[in-house]
Simulated assay, not measured.
Amino acid sequence: MSDMTKFDAPRIRLLSAVDDDQLQALADLLIDCVEGGASVSFMHPLTPERAQAFWRNVAAGVAAGERDLLVAEDAEGIVGTVQLVLAQPENQPHRGEVSKMLVHRRARRRGIGELLMRAAEQQARERGKTLLVLDTSSPEAERLYARTGWTRVGSVPGFALLPRGEPCATTFFYLDLAGA
């Protein structure tokens, strides 16, 4: 990885555990996205302690087999992430949820979001999932999901708040892996 330039294609990895350096990098990524206005469950300002606590909880879910955590890395470290939530109600064992697809502002418009989504879809297939769902409050993410074959279900106005408190709509999507 040391010979990569910051414009080389990132490497996508599935993390089976999260070490302290990765925890810090993921916390920094989350803080960057919230500072950039992403509606990803947190309000501005997001403290490093709260961001780290979130990722510790995610790491516990990874360790318990409840979720998979994928990261995109470039020469400077982690620049993106996405989660595949595997733990679902007993009547939905075929379904997974894509969660917290984040790309650092310095690395956007390089195809990282699409790489992460394709990797999450492949991971879901390997885990035996046939249906994926997700939601987003980002028009840019909506375009990505539509372009990569996801089906838009609809939007709920005022579903969430943006990091500085303004209400925003949330749009729901699904992907039928059995038919893809």
Rank of each mutant, 00 (worst) to 15 (best):
A63E: 01
K129R: 14
L15S: 08
M117L: 15
T148G: 08
R67Q: 15
V85W: 07
R147C: 02
D32Q: 04
G96Q: 07
L86M: 04
A59P: 02
D32F: 01
F7Q: 15
L30W: 06
I12W: 02
E76Q: 13
A25Q: 09
V103Y: 14
G154N: 08
G154Q: 00
L175S: 12
R127D: 11
E121L: 10
D32T: 02
D3A: 09
G158N: 14
Q92R: 13
P48V: 09
Q88H: 04
R95S: 06
E73F: 04
P157A: 07
I78W: 05
L102H: 07
Q22D: 15
A160M: 02
Q122P: 05
S16W: 07
E49G: 02
V40T: 15
R143M: 09
L115S: 15
S2T: 10
L102R: 06
R13G: 05
P163V: 00
R147Q: 02
G37E: 13
P139V: 00
T47H: 05
G80F: 04
A180I: 03
Q92G: 04
G61R: 12
G149S: 08
I12E: 06
D19Q: 02
K129V: 00
L162Q: 13
L23T: 03
L161N: 11
A25L: 02
I112F: 05
S41P: 03
G149L: 10
K100F: 08
P89Q: 11
F42T: 00
F42L: 03
L161A: 09
A38H: 13
G113S: 07
D21S: 10
G111F: 13
R13Q: 14
L23W: 09
D68W: 02
R13E: 13
R67E: 14
G36M: 08
Q92C: 06
S41L: 11
A160Q: 06
D135S: 06
L161C: 03
